[in-house]
Deep mutational scan, measured.
Amino acid sequence: KYFGTAKARYDFCARDRSELSLKEGDIIKILNKKGQQGWWRGEIYGRVGWFPANYVEEDYS
């Protein structure tokens, strides 16, 4: 189950295995919004990890 999707506004390079690298334009499935302050958990291309919420724009459609 996921909470919708978000589109990456910027590139983000994961610093460890718990984080999710993003490329601008990627569409991420949002799995959890209750991580550390400002971090969401998501899935993209079969990978799961945490990413900074301010790097994405949530899709409300």
Rank of each mutant, 00 (worst) to 15 (best):
D11E: 11
R41T: 04
W39F: 07
F12I: 05
I28A: 04
Y60W: 11
G25H: 00
D11H: 05
G46K: 05
E57H: 06
G35R: 08
K33G: 03
A8M: 03
F3R: 11
P52H: 03
N54H: 10
V48D: 05
E19D: 04
A14F: 02
I44T: 13
E19Q: 12
T5K: 06
R17Y: 15
T5E: 09
L20I: 07
E58R: 07
A6K: 03
Y10M: 15
A14M: 01
I27V: 15
D11M: 07
W39T: 07
I44L: 15
W40V: 04
I44S: 15
V56K: 04
N32P: 02
K23F: 04
F3Y: 14
G35V: 06
V56H: 03
L31V: 08
D26N: 06
N32F: 11
S61E: 09
D11F: 01
K7M: 14
C13H: 11
R47H: 09
T5P: 06
Y10F: 14
K29S: 12
E24I: 11
P52Y: 00
K1N: 15
P52G: 00
S21I: 07
D11R: 08
Y2E: 09
I28N: 01
Y60I: 13
A8I: 05
E58S: 07
K29P: 06
Q37D: 14
K34L: 08
E19V: 01
S18T: 13
E57I: 12
L22C: 06
Y55C: 15
D59M: 13
K29M: 12
N54V: 12
Y2H: 11
W39K: 10
G35A: 07
I44F: 09
A6N: 01
Y60R: 14
N54Q: 10
K34G: 13
S21P: 07
Q36H: 14
W50S: 04
K7W: 06
Q36K: 15
D11S: 09
G42T: 02
C13Q: 15
W50Q: 05
T5F: 15
W40M: 06
E58H: 05
K33R: 12
W40A: 00
K1Q: 15
E43S: 11
V48I: 14
V48R: 12
I28V: 14
L31K: 07
E43H: 00
E58C: 10
K29N: 13
G42A: 05
S61A: 12
K29A: 09
Y2Q: 12
L31N: 04
K29Y: 09
L22T: 06
A53M: 10
D16L: 06
G49C: 02
R15Q: 09
G35L: 06
R17L: 14
D11P: 08
P52Q: 05
S21W: 00
Y55N: 09
G25N: 03
R17M: 13
G25R: 04
R17S: 15
S61Y: 03
R9H: 05
E43C: 07
K23I: 05
P52K: 05
R15M: 05
G35N: 07
W50Y: 10
K33W: 03
W40Y: 10
R47F: 02
A14L: 00
L31C: 06
A6V: 10
G25C: 01
W50P: 03
F51R: 02
K29V: 07
F12E: 00
L20Q: 00
D59K: 15
K23N: 04
R9D: 00
N54K: 12
W40E: 01
A14Y: 07
G49P: 02
E24D: 07
I27D: 11
K1W: 06
W40N: 05
Q37P: 14
Y55W: 10
R47C: 08
Q37G: 14
W40C: 02
